[in-house]
Design a protein around this nucleic acid. Structure first.
Length: 896
DNA sequence: GAGTTTGAAACT
DNA sequence: CAGTTTCAAACTC
């Protein structure tokens, strides 16, 4: 145990990686996946880990460039749609996608010296991109580190000048019309950038400014996308030329910068020249195959998203948790985008790097390549722009989404982050090759990667609203690690981790304590468990420990992926729900009628999965998990003297009684089992998004904006944050709203139970094509939340007859494939670690005599859901990791 | 910052 | 399954 073996896959699976990448990149895919499936995937951290594992495998030189993985992506079912197509499909990210598309188009045009943009709709976007590109460069150059990396060839002044003059500058090669549009659109963001640059404020500061105005922010983000691309070009050019001659690079850079002063048009004009540097990439791309187009487009899109994410990240970074919470929906979305885009960008980066190393002599030129290079380079400015150099230690970001509560964002982020970190690591390692030039190149990339990783971590933290923490990490570890150093770190044994773990633990802890509360970016302080037990918050949340952690001898790190996975598996074998979210939200809380117009109801009905067992804290302190999660105690709690301000257990029971009394005859049984009923509604509710299933929540993008926003908020990383967000949404105080909410919600659910029955049935049917809202199923199967009886008397009886009623039903329908899984199908042992907690409340006689019954049901659900996954259905936007999780889950299953 | 309290997790 | 131990977070001083 003390020396867990390293888990590096010697031969990385390109296809696997591609699939993971595809999952993430598919964030824009309009196809929604079943929330249930998401949840399922979330339950199995192994999947994510696998993805991560694959990513790690890229460390090896033998691993093929990511570019090669593109085809597999398609095979995974990812629509081979160009960015344009994506943009048409995805409403949320449409604009961003358009940007990338347009930029791409612009590039193409510029290559041919054709500046005519035919698509009027896109003109604005183009303009924005053009304008922002220069700005991005400004920021990038403004950063000391960045400037340094740029060989000082690029004068900051020039950039400043450029940013100020963009509007007035002549638009060589561009139509006047375009210029006009461009100017009008970019004014806001430009002003901001200019001010920022002039004042010399940090990116965060600027971003903070933008926060006040969401729109403004949006604009900037959009610009950022374009900026990243254009900047990427420049950077690429810089690096590219650096390989051959620094002087040459300077030469090229100089004019370019000057040209930028004249506006984006100049930049475009120079693109053809810049593209020369991309030749090698192009050639490489050609080798890749005809399908390169798709990946490239995707990457372009990703690049833009990445850029945007970075902007968002900065914003979030600068924002305090409260603020983040306030703009929860935005933040969440951002976080998702950031994570997915970041991961993608990272992949791209890796690809680019690999390609550059592999085929420097290639001469063929393809547009796709250009895009690729753009994307790859895009990473640089971003990283530098953030100006944060973080140790390239194995990122502490997540194993999977299960997380307790650390829901979605974090979960996704975690997964993506992990992948990113690994990809970065691999990139860095790979970069460090023989030739000096290559070293230089790799160095440059490393500089990028390092901060990138840091940025990612920051993002994760930001997602949780832990700006301070992020800053701390950044500052405390703000040194640039050399490739060797990185390697050293990555190869260090468990004790080596202590280097990070024990890095001024006190300081960290202090910081942690300050940032932990409410931000959801929890970090552990484990000393004896090596962060491989549920005691460890990080481990329990399915994320890797990171810098903020003060743990000792930590094995919950990417280096010990296998150990982590094995441990998790072991724990899951004992209690399949061990890593499941702890807080459940009854669906009833969101009546259908309310959903349409943006439900503002408080998730006050959320309850702890297993309930608490407080004896002395009276559920008034954070010792109480219910209280800590900002949820009221429920019938499932065994607490004594409950005074939970979010809802007393007693009140909860009373409410249920009232509901039962008012229940209809047909629902009498339900009334007899209030708890079931409540969760049944949850189960049946097609709109319900499992609060605990981040991925599920995130999958609701198809709904109206308000709903999506609401749901997104609930995707916050940590249990605490998650609930906090929920609380925030509620104008009412927990205390006053709780009981009433429950009552109303329960009643509502009862009345709707019937009409939802059919739907629920469909969802329950494993053969159904998709479990659209099935995400809520998982928890319904939770022991504590037994499935509520369905309208169907048959099913009702089945449920009533025995705790395993539902289970039986499911079992009958369970596909063979599910029946035969490595996962123990038999009910969890009563003696399982969680057995106590998982088992139904003692006072819930109606729930069944056997505590294992409900649990079994839960397991069955999980297993059943697997085949129901739309195998290759890509997730849309924020669900990238969710898909990944699902895919991984499937993969893992098959392996098992 | 050290020590205590608390309750979940793990163990028996 | 209940009781006990271990653990780390929360809390107190």
């Amino acid at each position: 145990m003390d020396s867990p073996k390293l888990s590096k896959s010697p031969i990385p699976s390109a296809s696997a990686f591609a699939s993971a990448s595809a999952s993430i990149s598919s964030s824009s895919s309009p196809v929604q996946e079943s929330p249930f499936s998401n949840y399922i995937s979330s339950l199995s951290p192994i999947k994510h880990d696998k993805a991560a594992h694959v990513a790690q495998g890229f460390v090896g030189l033998s691993s093929p460039p990511l570019v090669f993985t593109s085809p597999p992506i398609n095979t995974l079912g990812r629509p081979q749609s160009s960015s344009v197509e994506i943009s048409q499909k995805c409403e949320g990210d449409k604009k961003i996608i358009n940007e990338s598309c347009i930029l791409e188009r612009s590039v193409t045009e510029s290559q041919g010296l054709v500046t005519d943009i035919k698509n009027e709709d896109n003109k604005d976007d183009v303009a924005v991109q053009l304008g922002s590109s220069s700005e991005c460069v400004d920021e990038y150059l403004a950063d000391p580190v960045e400037t340094d990396c740029a060989k000082s060839a690029c004068s900051v002044k020039l950039n400043l000048k450029q940013s100020n003059n963009v509007l007035q500058s002549s638009v060589d090669g561009l139509l006047d019309l375009k210029n006009i549009k461009f100017g009008s659109k970019n004014n806001v963001g430009r002003e901001v950038d200019a001010a920022q640059f002039l004042s010399g404020q940090s990116e965060e500061s600027i971003e903070r400014k933008l926060t006040s105005d969401e729109k403004l922010l949006k604009i900037e983000n959009e610009q950022g996308s374009a900026q990243g691309i254009s900047d990427g070009f420049q950077k690429f050019e810089s690096d590219r030329f650096d390989l051959s001659s620094k002087e040459k690079e300077c030469k090229n850079f100089g004019p370019q910068k000057d040209g930028r002063g004249d506006g984006c048009s100049n930049f475009l004009q120079q693109l053809p020249g810049s593209l020369l540097g991309v030749q090698s990439y192009e050639g490489f791309a050609k080798n890749i195959g005809g399908d390169a187009d798709v990946p490239v487009h995707s990457m372009t899109h990703e690049a833009s998203e990445l850029q945007r994410s970075m902007s968002r990240r900065c914003l979030q970074f600068g924002e305090a948790q409260p603020e983040a919470t306030a703009t929860c929906s935005i933040s969440t979305n951002r976080a998702n985008n950031i994570i997915s885009s970041t991961s993608l960008a990272t992949n791209s980066e890796t690809e680019s790097l690999s390609s550059s190393h592999l085929d420097l002599s290639a001469k063929s030129r393809t547009r796709q390549l250009v895009n690729l290079s753009q994307l790859a380079m895009n990473m640089i400015p971003q990283c530098y722009g953030n100006s944060s150099l973080t140790v390239l230690k194995p990122s502490g970001i997540g194993l999977h989404l299960n997380s307790i509560v650390n829901a979605t964002s974090m979960g996704q982020g975690g997964t993506a982050s992990m992948k990113l970190a690994q990809a970065i690591k691999s990139t860095s390692t790979t970069s460090c090759q023989t030739t000096e030039n290559i070293d230089n190149c790799s160095d440059a990339f490393e500089k990028v990667s390092t901060p990138q990783e840091g940025a990612l971590e920051q993002k994760v933290c930001t997602i949780a609203g832990s700006a301070s923490e992020s800053l701390f990490a950044e500052e405390s570890v703000g040194f640039h690690m050399t490739p060797n150093t990185k390697r050293k770190f990555s190869s260090e044994d468990g004790d080596g981790n202590d280097m990070f773990d024990q890095q001024s633990p006190i300081k960290k802890r202090k910081k942690l304590s300050n940032s932990t509360d409410g931000d959801g970016c929890k970090r552990c302080n484990c000393k004896k468990t090596k962060c491989l037990k549920l005691y460890c918050d990080c481990f329990a949340a399915g994320i890797y420990c990171a810098e903020p952690c003060s743990c000792q001898g930590c094995f919950n790190r990417p280096e010990y992926e296998e150990t982590v996975l094995a441990t998790r598996k072991q724990i899951e074998s004992r209690n399949p729900l061990a890593f499941a979210p702890k807080i459940v939200q009854p669906v009833t809380e969101f009546p259908l009628s309310n959903r349409e117009d943006g439900n503002r109801k408080t998730p006050s009905s959320a309850r702890h999965k297993r309930g608490c067992n407080c004896k002395r804290s009276m559920c008034l302190k954070k010792y109480c998990e219910c209280y800590q999660a900002n949820v009221g105690c429920s019938i499932g709690c065994r607490c004594e003297g409950c005074k939970n301000v979010y809802g007393k257990k007693k009140d909860y029971c009373v409410t249920e009684e009232m509901v039962n009394r008012s229940g209809e005859i047909s629902e009498s049984r339900v009334a007899a089992k209030p708890k079931k009923e409540i969760f049944h509604s949850e189960l049946c509710d097609p709109y319900r998004l499992t609060p605990l299933t981040p991925s599920v929540q995130c999958s609701d993008h198809g709904k109206n904006a308000s709903i999506s926003r609401l749901l997104s908020r609930r995707c916050l990383p940590s249990p605490e944050s998650d609930l906090t967000v929920l609380s925030y949404e509620s104008p009412r105080s927990p205390r006053t709203s709780d009981s009433n909410d429950i009552l109303l919600e329960t009643s509502s659910s009862s009345s709707k139970a019937r009409e939802l029955t059919s739907l629920s049935r469909v969802q329950l049917d494993p053969r159904s094509r998709s479990l659209t809202s099935g995400g809520s199923l998982h928890w319904h199967s939770s022991p504590i939340m037994p499935m509520s009886p369905l309208n169907d008397n048959k099913k009702l009886q089945g449920l009533d007859s025995a705790d395993g009623g539902l289970y039986d039903i499911l079992e009958d329908d369970m596909p063979e494939i599910l029946k035969d899984t490595s996962m123990p199908i038999k009910p969890v042992k009563a003696g399982s670690p969680n057995g106590k907690r998982v088992s139904p409340p003692h006072n819930l006689h109606q729930l069944g005599s056997s505590s294992s019954g409900p649990l079994r049901s839960g397991r069955k659900f999980i297993l059943k859901a697997v085949p129901s996954f739309p195998p290759l259905t890509p997730c849309i936007d924020a669900k990238g990791s969710c898909n990944q999780s699902r895919n991984n889950f499937q993969e893992n299953r098959s392996n098992d």
